[in-house]
């Protein structure tokens, strides 16, 4: 498989037998996921299922305790620092907070990866940055500082930065959380548009069921460290599995219990 890294039938990201622990708690316990090229793949699950951790594992910021993650045929965790950085230049990541550098303007934030990694003259950098800002509707906000942006604008600016190096894939960490309906609508439109226009592969990590099923081609639902369902989004949306139904329909109790594990209420109250 690694001999044909650009084989278009091969999934861009291939996760096999992934195990990851935080202390004693297993965040992932044997997870297999394929992210097909050119698609928008959603990773969904309740809070605390390690969705952000998964993105950090794919980006090589965290190391799994077992299992492998291949991106474009390369085993992420066997690369040298130099090779890993080279691979990261082909991945964009949109953090939940935007993670813009707060001491420089929006323009400089978007230009940052270009200035760091290319020797392009300023005139070209300016054009590229303005094009990316135009795509997210923030060309007019280029001179603002990140602190002057609203949450939705910061996320859009971060999106422009994530795609400025024309990566092959982009990872969105909870893109819809805490957005007002208008910004949400803008993001729902932008993600597929960018994916199509730049021929990207997108991974969207989210627990916003409605929005995510609308834009995703594939969905994986995670719970308790395992993939409980995976497949084309329509199939998942119509799934009859109790687990999937509880999550998709937002039922308070079910296979994922409402209560955090504890001893029975009676013993707890009557004790002492």
């Amino acid at each position: 498989m690694s001999s044909h890294p650009d084989d278009s039938n091969e999934p861009l990201v291939k996760i096999r037998g992934l195990r990851f622990f935080r202390g004693e708690r297993a965040i992932f316990d044997g997870v297999d996921i394929d992210i097909p090229r050119g698609s928008i793949t959603a990773i969904m699950g309740p809070s605390g299922t390690g969705k952000t951790t998964l993105l950090k594992l794919i980006g090589g910021q965290l190391r799994p305790h077992a299992g492998t993650i291949h991106v474009n045929g390369q085993d992420v965790h066997k690369l040298s620092t130099k090779e890993l950085y080279k691979l990261r230049m082909r991945m964009g990541m949109l953090f939940q907070s935007g993670a813009l550098l707060t001491d420089i303007s929006v323009f400089d934030n978007i230009a940052y990866p270009l200035r760091e990694h290319t020797k392009l003259p300023e005139s070209i950098i300016r054009k590229l940055v303005l094009m990316k800002l135009e795509a997210v509707g923030l060309r007019g906000a280029r001179d603002l500082m990140p602190s002057e942006l609203s949450g939705g604008m910061a996320r859009r600016a971060a999106m422009a930065r994530a795609v400025v190096l024309d990566p092959e894939m982009i990872m969105y960490d909870e893109p819809f959380t805490g957005q007002d309906p208008i910004s949400m609508g803008v993001l729902i439109q932008l993600i597929p548009r960018l994916n199509k226009a730049s021929r990207l592969t997108s991974i969207v990590v989210s627990h916003d069921v409605q929005e995510t099923t609308n834009i995703a081609d594939m969905i994986y639902v995670l719970s308790n460290g395992k993939v409980i369902a995976g497949g084309p989004s329509k199939q998942i949306a119509n799934s009859t599995s109790f687990w999937v139904r509880q999550f998709m329909d937002g039922l308070p109790d079910g296979p994922v219990p409402f209560h955090f594990p504890a001893e029975p209420l009676e013993t707890d109250i009557l004790e002492n």
């Binding site: 990261r88 707060t102 971060a158």
Partner: peptide
């Protein structure tokens, strides 16, 4: 910068 994920963001932009 760490709390607001700016350091993490730099890492993901392939900047040490």
């Amino acid at each position: 910068m760490k709390a607001t994920e700016q350091l993490s963001g730099l890492e993901m932009m392939a900047v040490d």
